[in-house]
């Protein structure tokens, strides 16, 4: 093992798992930094999660659509679709109002990727599903009430 490689491995070890992933080229340094911070994911209330994302003043927008079922009988896999028609959309977040940790997912939308995503979420109880979109530096929000008949977090 030559000296350079040893130094690289040593440096990677000091950075932990994310550092190793960066060294291996699995993720970029910027992404490793973002992963280490994760604002909003430790929030226990919807408003706190929105504030952590910098979105406490988000405005309702008709250019943002949120599709989720009215009634979710299987609450451990509730299909949610978010679609933005706002120019410059670069981030989409999905939150579940009454879950223990409301922030479910934050998606980065690079240039060339459609500002839309479909995923599936767990819901602890009947609550609003919330879609948050950042476009041109401003946040926009949409809500949809989902009735849960059997909890998906128990």
């Amino acid at each position: 093992m030559d000296q350079k490689r040893r130094q690289l491995l040593h440096a990677a070890g000091g950075l932990g798992v994310l550092g190793l992933l960066v060294a291996a080229g699995v993720i970029s340094p910027a992404q490793a930094q973002a992963a280490a911070a994760r604002p909003g994911f430790d929030a226990r209330e919807l408003d706190a999660a929105l504030a952590a994302l910098g979105a406490q003043d988000a405005s309702a927008s008709t250019e943002l659509s949120l599709a989720a079922p009215d009634i979710a009988e299987v609450a451990n896999a509730v299909s949610v679709e978010v679609k933005s028609r706002l120019p410059g959309t670069d981030r989409i977040a999905i939150l579940v109002e009454k879950n223990p940790f409301p922030l479910a997912a934050v998606f980065s939308i690079p240039e060339g990727t459609q500002p839309e995503v479909i995923t599936r979420l767990k819901m602890a109880q009947s609550a609003d599903v919330v879609a948050l979109v950042r476009a041109g530096g401003r946040f926009h929000i949409a809500r949809k009430a989902v009735i849960v008949t059997i909890s998906g977090c128990g």
């Binding site: 970029s28 992404q31 479910a104 934050v106 998606f107 980065s108 939308i109 990727t113 599936r120 979420l121």
Partner: peptide, 14 residues
């Protein structure tokens, strides 16, 4: 090029 990236919390389904 990264074309899609996601941060997940524990509310995303199994």
């Amino acid at each position: 090029r990264v074309v899609f990236s996601a941060e997940f919390g524990p509310s995303v389904s199994a």
